[in-house]
Amino acid sequence: MEVFEILKTLREKNNLTQEEMANRVNITRQAVSRWETGETQPNPEMLKVLSREFNISINTLLGSPRQLYCQCCGMPLTEDSMISREPDQTFNEDYCKWCYVDGEFIYKQKDSLIDFLLQHMPNPQNQSDDERRKLFDSMLSQLKHWKA
């Protein structure tokens, strides 16, 4: 979906007129109309306002142009419900809700996350824990949160 289609669908899903949507985010009805025709797009600050007001990630508002991955555990973030939140409830699109909660990282040390993965991730190739630990460490070390 294009951004203009997403914005119109968002408005309609919330049973709002263009005027009502404009009032919710403190802009003119004409601005909403221009978004919905594709003439213009919301600026970055307005995307943040829309994200907060309608509980939708900026990535989703933009038509999911990039695949998000948790930068702590590497899990694909395929739905907004999986994305972490800051204490003010804005989305933090870098982390999943299981690794980052209310501004705090759950896994303070990479080894604690690796221990969790060893216990909970399938092991179809019957690798030893040492082999799996090395693999997990190698993969996690490429993510933003664990880069040295």
Rank of each mutant, 00 (worst) to 15 (best):
S33Q: 01
L16F: 13
K8P: 04
F91Q: 13
T28E: 10
R11V: 00
L7Y: 08
Y107M: 01
M82H: 09
L62S: 10
E86F: 01
Q30N: 09
K147P: 08
T17C: 02
S57W: 09
S84H: 05
S112W: 03
Q18M: 02
T40H: 02
Q41I: 14
D88W: 02
L77K: 10
E12D: 01
Q30S: 12
D80W: 09
Q30H: 10
E79A: 14
R85M: 12
C99R: 00
E36W: 04
L77Q: 03
D137K: 14
D102T: 03
Q30K: 07
N59Q: 11
M139Q: 15
L77H: 04
N55Q: 15
E104R: 02
S138I: 03
T9N: 09
T90A: 02
R133K: 13
S84R: 04
G63V: 08
F105I: 11
T40S: 07
Q41G: 00
C70T: 15
S57C: 14
K134W: 05
K144D: 13
R34H: 02
N55R: 15
F54W: 11
S141D: 15
Y100T: 12
L77T: 06
N15R: 10
D115C: 08
V25F: 01
P124Y: 03
V25N: 06
E2G: 08
Q119G: 12
M139V: 12
L143W: 15
G74L: 00
D137I: 01
I114L: 10
R66T: 04
R52N: 15
G63F: 06
Q119V: 08
K48L: 09
T28F: 05
R11I: 00
F136S: 07
R133S: 11
Q41C: 02
W98E: 15
Q67D: 13
E131Y: 06
E53A: 10
R29P: 11
V101A: 07
C70W: 08
D115P: 00
I6Y: 09
L62T: 04
M46K: 07
Q67Y: 14
